[in-house]
Amino acid sequence: MFITYAVIGVILGAMSLASAVAKLARTKDMVEGLHGRLGVPLGWFPFLAVCEIAGAAGLIGGLWYKPIGIAAAVGLVLYFIGAVGAHLRKNDVKGAPSATVFLVLSAAAIAFRVVAG
């Protein structure tokens, strides 16, 4: 189970970091999706990016210290519940699937880290 957590944690961490970098760089797709379709203020981008960076760091730290990995995964689940909710609220069928994938991977990270020794 630990190897499964490690794989999920590293993949989810890399995906979260990529998303955070896109927010910080204010890439066209990120601005169009979050600001344009969802109405997220541009001033929130750094805060959202820091949340994702903290989650990614916690997932990696969770490879050595179980409680940090669990806490990071819980934080990411809460973050992506908000993201999925925002997409559904605005009926954004373009962005909801990717947020849902992040949410499912975050939930899987919790499950596998809790079970892993």
Rank of each mutant, 00 (worst) to 15 (best):
Y65P: 07
L24W: 07
A54L: 15
S106P: 05
V10T: 14
A99Y: 02
G13L: 01
A71Q: 03
A99C: 06
N91Y: 11
K66R: 15
E32C: 00
V74C: 12
A71G: 10
G69Q: 02
A86F: 12
F80T: 07
A49G: 08
S16F: 05
A20R: 03
Y79M: 09
C51A: 14
L76C: 06
A18L: 11
A73T: 06
L105T: 05
G75D: 09
L38F: 09
I68G: 07
A107Y: 01
F2N: 00
G58L: 01
A73I: 06
A116K: 00
L59E: 07
L103I: 04
K94C: 10
K28F: 02
L76D: 03
T100W: 01
F47Y: 12
D29I: 12
G43Y: 09
I60T: 08
S19Y: 03
L78C: 14
V115N: 03
V101P: 03
K94W: 14
E32N: 11
L76S: 03
G39E: 11
P97G: 13
G69E: 06
A107V: 12
K66W: 10
G82L: 14
P97I: 14
P67C: 08
F80N: 08
G69S: 01
R89D: 15
M30Q: 09
T4S: 06
G13C: 03
V50S: 13
T4Q: 02
A54W: 00
S106T: 05
A116F: 01
Y79S: 04
T4R: 04
P67L: 12
P41W: 09
T27I: 11
D29F: 13
I110C: 12
F45W: 11
V115P: 00
V104K: 08
G61S: 13
I3C: 00
A96I: 09
R26P: 04
V115I: 13
K90P: 03
A71L: 14
G33A: 15
V101Y: 01
A111C: 08
L105I: 04
V93D: 13
L42V: 14
N91V: 11
G62N: 07
A83H: 03
A107M: 13
A96N: 06
I81Y: 07
H35G: 07
G95A: 14
S98F: 13
G95Q: 11
V115W: 11
I53T: 12
G13P: 05
A107L: 15
S16L: 14
W44L: 13
L59S: 05
F112D: 02
G61Y: 11
A25W: 10
A49E: 08
G43I: 10
M30H: 03
L42S: 11
G75L: 08
H87W: 05
F112E: 04
L24E: 02
I8A: 00
L48D: 11
A111M: 07
I11L: 13
